[in-house]
Simulated scan of single mutants.
Amino acid sequence: MHRRILTGLTLMLAGTVNATEVTGGLIGNPQTQTERWLQWQTEGSAASTQVQSATPAERERSMQRLLDSFNHPIPEYFGEKDGGSFER
């Protein structure tokens, strides 16, 4: 378990270092980083080796949560006093 976490962190850090250029203390172009991550996604080179799947019970509960979400209408607008508080 710890080995997988360390491997993932190593891959992430190695990709970040390779995808960025440090100039004047600032990290390089964020667009370049995004393009690198998208490239890794399409290549599958940073994908997990462990297959992740849900059990039939998990899939059923997930679908039921989705269906239940339609029982609550979306209000036309949210008033300031309708929920929570915050400082201005």
Rank of each mutant, 00 (worst) to 15 (best):
Q33V: 07
T55M: 06
R65N: 10
T23E: 15
Q64V: 13
W37A: 05
L6G: 12
I27N: 00
R61D: 03
Q33F: 03
T10M: 01
T55D: 10
R88E: 10
F78N: 11
M1G: 11
E76W: 05
L66Y: 07
A14F: 11
Q33M: 05
P30K: 01
P56L: 02
G83M: 12
F86Y: 13
T7Y: 07
R36A: 05
E60A: 11
S53G: 04
V51F: 03
T23H: 15
T32G: 07
R4G: 07
R61K: 03
T10W: 03
A46Y: 05
T20Q: 08
H2C: 14
S53Q: 09
M12R: 12
A47L: 09
P56A: 08
A47C: 10
Q52F: 13
T10Q: 07
H2I: 15
W37K: 03
T34C: 03
I27E: 00
L6K: 13
S45F: 04
N71W: 01
I27S: 01
F70V: 08
L26N: 11
L9R: 10
W40R: 06
P73Q: 00
E87T: 14
H72A: 04
F86V: 09
K81D: 11
G24M: 05
M1P: 11
L66D: 04
I5D: 14
S53V: 06
E58A: 13
R4Y: 06
L13I: 09
T42M: 04
T55V: 08
R88D: 11
T34F: 03
L26V: 10
W40C: 05
N18P: 04
Q64E: 15
A14E: 13
L13T: 11
W37Q: 05
L26S: 10
Y77Q: 13
M1K: 06
E58F: 04
R36K: 04
L6D: 14
P73L: 00
R65Q: 14
R88Q: 09
N71Q: 13
S85P: 10
Q39A: 13
S53W: 00
T10N: 09
V17R: 08
L66S: 10
R3D: 13
G44V: 02
W40D: 06
T32I: 07
P56G: 02
Q31L: 12
T32H: 08
T10P: 02
T20I: 10
E21L: 02
G83T: 12
G28I: 02
E87K: 13
F78Q: 12
K81L: 06
G79F: 07
N29I: 08
Q52D: 07
E80S: 08
I27F: 07
L6F: 07
P30M: 02
F70I: 04
Y77A: 14
P56V: 01
